[in-house]
Simulated scan of single mutants.
Amino acid sequence: MSTRTVLPEGWKRPRGYANGMAARGELLAIAGQIGWNADEQFESDEFGAQFRQALANVVAVVEAAGGSPANLISLTIYVTDKREYLGQIDAVGRAYRELIGKHFPAMALVGVNELLEDRAKVEIQGLAVLPSDAPEA
């Protein structure tokens, strides 16, 4: 798998995300993951904890397909309350660094009125490009 960050000439380098990512390999689409565990149980109603769990779920899907967080090329983060997201930005950043590290794919943050699961405060959908030698799932 090969990836490269795309930054148009003259644009300021973004902080915490890429404007574009180009990649070659097997494409993995990751369904929207919310902040519940493998048993579909919420362990917290706190935004930061739900963000961490949702991101861990994304990483778990990538790893189950034979990849790693560095294979992520795009994340779309849906939040039900922008102010709660901003109020928990330190917890969000800590969780991101612990689970993804210093890899910053293309990202979008979208505010929504609600998510399908009533207790969900965040949902993260992703795209990854797996290395050609990744084991078949």
Rank of each mutant, 00 (worst) to 15 (best):
V129Y: 04
W11L: 15
F42P: 10
A54M: 13
A95C: 04
Q50C: 06
L115V: 12
A137T: 03
D81V: 07
A38E: 11
K102L: 09
R52M: 09
A128W: 04
A134G: 09
L27A: 09
R13A: 13
K102F: 10
R83K: 14
R83D: 15
A31Q: 05
A60N: 07
G66W: 05
E63W: 07
E46H: 15
L116G: 11
L130K: 01
E46R: 15
E63D: 03
L28R: 03
D45T: 12
P135C: 04
Q50R: 01
V6R: 08
A91H: 09
G35V: 01
I100M: 08
V61T: 14
K82F: 14
G111L: 03
L7E: 00
S2D: 13
F47C: 09
R24E: 13
Q53K: 06
A64S: 14
R24L: 09
V122W: 04
S68Q: 11
A60L: 07
M1E: 11
P135E: 05
E40R: 13
A23Q: 02
L27M: 11
A49G: 12
E40D: 10
L86Y: 02
V112K: 12
A65K: 06
R119T: 05
L28G: 02
V129A: 05
E123A: 14
G25P: 12
R119H: 07
I73Q: 00
R52D: 11
P14R: 08
E43S: 13
G10K: 07
T5V: 12
P135Y: 05
D81L: 14
E9I: 13
A95L: 01
G126I: 08
R52S: 12
R94M: 05
E63R: 07
A60V: 06
K82W: 15
Q50N: 00
G111W: 12
G10C: 06
K82I: 15
G32C: 02
K82R: 15
F47N: 14
A23G: 00
G66Q: 05
L116Y: 12
G25I: 10
V110W: 06
K102W: 05
L75P: 02
I100W: 04
P135S: 02
T80G: 11
L99I: 01
